[in-house]
């Protein structure tokens, strides 16, 4: 009994210390990145290369995710809409949920799983093969040269993907509305246009920028702190996607309160 309590306390203690260290590391990295951005000495070639690669990796998956996310929200609201016989409400209910919450969150999670995980694996491999030290030895700052372009590319890319994804999700919702509940497209479009404000859209977009920054920083942090060869890289990818998911959920909470 006592042994169990002791073990539990030790477990909580070590977990807390580990989380505190990781959060601290990510915050320090965030400051380094900010400092490197003023004045902006961004390596254009790296930025373009990363934008291209990340876009390629994520656009199809995000489009698919967004389409089904929109459809899902419509199906979830369908029993309610049927009950009230209020077809005019369907687009509004689904659109509100998609634009403010489901769209940004699901797209961010998918982006983290695809682009963030890949980025961690790439930086992790570079770290264990001493390529980061190689950069330092050439008097090139790895933060400025490697990290900053990736962070900027990820923020820009997730923002763009959320804009596209919102649109695709509304299309998905409209098609589902027609196919499952039998709501006409025109009814759906009216419902969206009449009831949703531009701010509902912006609310989600602001969130996506913050999500982008947090996914980028976590994935870079876990990449450059890899220890222990190939197994270490796998573990880092796992830790990075989990940390990114938690940070997206936490930030969503604070952003929702803050943005209103």
């Amino acid at each position: 009994m006592f042994g169990f309590v002791e073990r539990a306390i030790t477990q909580v203690g070590t977990t807390t210390v580990r989380i505190a260290r990781e959060v601290g590391g990510i915050v320090v990295l965030a400051f380094d990145v900010l400092r490197a951005l003023f004045p902006p000495t961004l390596d254009g070639r790296e930025l373009v290369k990363n934008l291209y690669k990340m876009g390629n990796q994520s656009v199809p998956i995000v489009a698919l995710t967004a389409f089904f996310a929109g459809g899902l929200m419509l199906v979830q609201s369908a029993p309610f809409v049927e009950k009230l016989q209020a077809h005019a409400l369907a687009g509004w209910a689904a659109g509100y949920a998609v634009l403010r919450e489901i769209g940004p969150i699901l797209i961010a999670l998918m982006f983290s799983g695809r682009v963030g995980a890949n980025n961690t694996a790439e930086l992790g491999t570079m770290t264990v093969t001493e390529q980061l030290d190689g950069l330092r030895a050439l008097a090139i700052d790895p933060i400025r040269y490697l990290i900053v372009p990736r962070v900027v590319a990820m923020v820009v890319m997730l923002l763009a993907l959320t804009v596209i994804g919102d649109l695709v999700a509304l299309v998905g919702a409209a098609i589902t509305a027609k196919a499952v509940v039998g709501i006409e497209f025109s009814t759906f479009i009216h419902s969206v246009v009449d009831n949703l404000k531009p701010y509902d859209f912006l609310h989600g977009i602001y969130k996506s920028m913050v999500f982008g920054a947090s996914i980028a920083l976590t994935s870079c942090y876990f990449g450059v702190t890899v220890r222990g060869g190939a197994v270490g890289v796998g573990r880092a990818v796992n830790a990075a996607v989990v940390a990114a998911a938690v940070s997206v959920m936490l930030l969503d909470f604070f952003m929702t309160y803050w943005l209103g």
């Binding site: 998956i61 799983g113 264990v128």
Partner: peptide, 20 residues
């Protein structure tokens, strides 16, 4: 190691999409 990295990423995306 790259193969394992690839498998990990594919698993996250694949199972998330499967859930959706």
């Amino acid at each position: 190691s790259e193969g394992v990295g690839w498998a990990t990423t594919a698993a996250v995306i694949g199972s998330s999409l499967a859930v959706l």
